[in-house]
């Protein structure tokens, strides 16, 4: 039940997007997010959209999974685009009470909608094609320079790894506790929102107690395996840039150049 959330689920594959260096993928994602919000006219937005479409086509993931992840945010998209429609300036096309819709409002709404959709698509692409371990690993390596500011990079990455490792375990446990409480006559389906939230207490308390017990056990198991923090630690897998990573960099550079050129030479639409 809780398990089929499409957003942020890794699917194994063999395409170029899967194979690319996870550090590079994160950097390119950040670049794309910046580009999505820096495309000020339709042609620039078209260039970014085309680039996202290319990435999705190369990603080796069935398109229906992307639609699934869009379904989750459909409400946010609709609401923000409606609100944006009323924020335009200039000659109103349609007037209702104190609200007025203008041409610039409609353009603004289109931009917001396209931007949110692109954002979700490109970030889903990252999580679909990169395993959680690779992601945390890449984040740890990318954040390494922050060590000089005394940021505990290794500890943060370790916490993320463990959290990700225990998500399925704790979900399974929640299911078990729910069944156990239902078997004891707990009613979790009927009543209003407040009653339903209150009904969660007998599930959350055992879950917390068990999570703490697990944490204690895990800490001991980690000590048994000589864990002493990040200092002096090596990694089994080392990351090296390869030939296909160079193609990715070239692709990202072309898109970046395209958007910049469009933004500079074509008048902004918003």
């Amino acid at each position: 039940m809780i398990r089929d959330v499409a957003l942020g689920q890794y699917m194994p594959g063999k395409g170029i997007v899967h194979k690319a260096d996870p550090r590079l993928k994160i950097l390119i994602l950040i670049a794309f997010i910046v580009l999505i919000f820096c495309s000020f006219n339709f042609i620039a937005l078209g260039v970014v959209s085309a680039a996202v479409a290319v990435v999705i086509a190369l990603s080796d993931i069935p398109v229906k999974y992307y639609f699934k992840s869009l379904k989750v945010i459909i409400f946010i998209v609709i609401i923000t685009s409606i609100i944006n429609m009323f924020y335009g300036t200039g000659e109103p096309i349609f007037r209702f009470w104190i609200l007025k819709i203008t041409m610039s409002g409609i353009i603004r709404a289109i931009f917001v909608t396209v931007r949110i959709i692109l954002l979700i698509l490109i970030s889903s692409c990252l999580t679909f094609t990169t395993s959680p371990t690779d992601l945390t690993d890449a984040i740890e390596r990318l954040m390494k320079p922050l060590k000089i500011f005394r940021v505990k990079v290794h500890e943060i990455a370790m916490m993320m790894t463990i959290a990700l490792r225990f998500v399925p375990t704790l979900l399974e446990e929640t299911d078990k506790i729910m069944s156990a409480q239902k078997a004891r006559g707990a009613d979790m389906e009927s009543g209003g929102l407040i009653k339903k939230v209150k009904a969660m207490t007998p599930i959350l308390i055992p879950l917390f107690v068990s999570a703490f017990r697990r944490a204690y056990d895990l800490a001991m198991a980690m000590e048994c395996r000589c864990y002493q923090g990040g200092d002096g630690r090596t990694r089994m897998k080392s990351l090296h840039l390869q030939k296909h990573d160079v193609y990715c960099i070239i692709f990202a550079a072309v898109v970046l150049a395209g958007v910049v050129v469009c933004d500079v030479f074509i008048a902004p639409a918003i």
């Binding site: 056990d217 002493q228 630690r233």
Partner: peptide
């Protein structure tokens, strides 16, 4: 080796979990 197998595994991929010990010891990749 402890009693509860779930609480001893650190990583989400088996080979990475097995690598955890030697990684802590600073062994060459």
């Amino acid at each position: 080796v402890l009693q509860n197998p779930d609480n001893q595994l650190v990583a989400s991929i088996i080979e990475e979990d097995v690598a955890f010990g030697p990684e802590n010891l600073g062994v060459e990749p």
